[in-house]
């Protein structure tokens, strides 16, 4: 079983889920659990099945076989889940004939906000920096504005679970940063699932992630585990002697190698106290008057995904 957290406090659970379209099996026997309060990433190349898995979580698609549970209920059980989940679908257009204000007020009303629907909708719009867009028609919004309105509807009423499909795609860097801050602000309060191609972003905001390839989960773990950030160290050096033996002698270190062409020293160690290993390795290097250009922990999510897919 692929599991990010096997504790009892599970927000989303996939049990042996398969989804077939007419000629293609988009998702094959996926088993997955996402713990409550996590920011969880879905990663994979195009066609890996990210959006299909995401759509089954949101209840848009029904699994061909297997069970998908969301907050303890069958996915798509709107009677139980309405107002408890917020969803940003990747390719759903906003209703062209409606104003932003009408659209968000309708959404808030359907979430049961009654007379407060307008206030809740305005607050959500202000949160994404769109306070002035209330009277604009959805059809007249730019791609970035429409995305932010869609993000506003996903966060309406602070739902327990938020599913975000490509939340920062097409946004300028400043707005993308703000969206990431919105996600980080909710960390721990809401469970957030993010499907994205932006691996640096996922590495920054996620606690755990599943890497998908051709409809299957090829890795699922905490980000620190996936990136080996607690068992791998890379140091870029420009000149000076490399005290490989001294580094290998450090207690937790299992292996060390120097790539002279790239000037990259790789140090592998037993999972443990990264800071103390880094301190000892750097002390050994500085003792030999090595010129350190940079230090990175782990191998990076991007490299990991490239290895696995």
């Amino acid at each position: 079983m692929n599991s990010a957290n096997t504790g009892v406090n599970i927000a989303i659970s996939f049990h042996n889920v398969t989804k077939r379209f007419v000629e293609k099996e988009a998702v094959s026997s996926v088993t997955l659990q996402i713990a409550r309060g996590q920011v969880f990433g879905l990663i994979g190349p195009n066609g890996a099945g990210k959006t299909t898995i995401f759509s089954m979580m949101a209840g848009f698609l029904k699994p061909s076989s297997g069970i998908v549970e969301v907050l303890g209920f069958r996915a798509g059980d709107t009677a139980a889940l309405s107002s408890r989940i917020g969803v940003l679908p990747q390719d759903a257009l906003l209703p062209s004939g409606e104003t932003v204000g009408d659209f968000l007020t309708n959404m808030a009303a359907l979430q049961g906000f009654g007379r407060n629907a307008k206030t809740v909708a305005r607050d959500a719009l202000n949160d994404v920096g769109g306070g002035d867009w209330w009277t604009l028609r959805c059809s007249g919004l730019s791609h970035g504005m429409a995305k932010r309105v869609a993000i506003a509807q996903a966060f309406l009423g602070e739902p327990e679970l938020v599913l975000l499909d490509e939340p920062t795609a097409g946004l300028d860097p400043r707005v993308a940063f703000e969206v990431r801050q919105q996600i980080l602000k909710r960390k721990g309060r809401s469970t957030i699932v993010v499907s994205s191609h932006n691996l640096h972003e996922l590495e920054e905001i996620c606690d755990a992630a599943a890497i998908l390839d051709r409809g299957k989960i090829v890795a699922c773990n905490a980000i620190a585990e996936l990136t080996a950030s607690n068992e791998e160290l890379h140091i870029q050096l420009s000149e000076g002697a490399i005290p490989l033996e001294a580094i290998r002698a450090i207690s937790l270190v299992t292996h060390a190698a120097f790539d002279s062409e790239r000037g990259d020293l790789s140090v592998y160690f037993k999972a443990g106290d990264v800071d103390s290993v880094m301190f000892e390795v750097l002390t050994a290097l500085l003792r030999e008057k090595a010129r350190v250009r940079g230090v990175s922990v782990g191998r990076g999510l991007e490299k990991r995904v490239m290895e696995l897919t």
Partner: peptide, 17 residues
């Protein structure tokens, strides 16, 4: 048209089909 542009997805997470 709601199905074509997937606008319906904003509704199906909030109201029974």
């Amino acid at each position: 048209s709601d199905l074509q542009f997937r606008t319906i997805r904003y509704w199906t997470v909030r109201a029974r089909r």
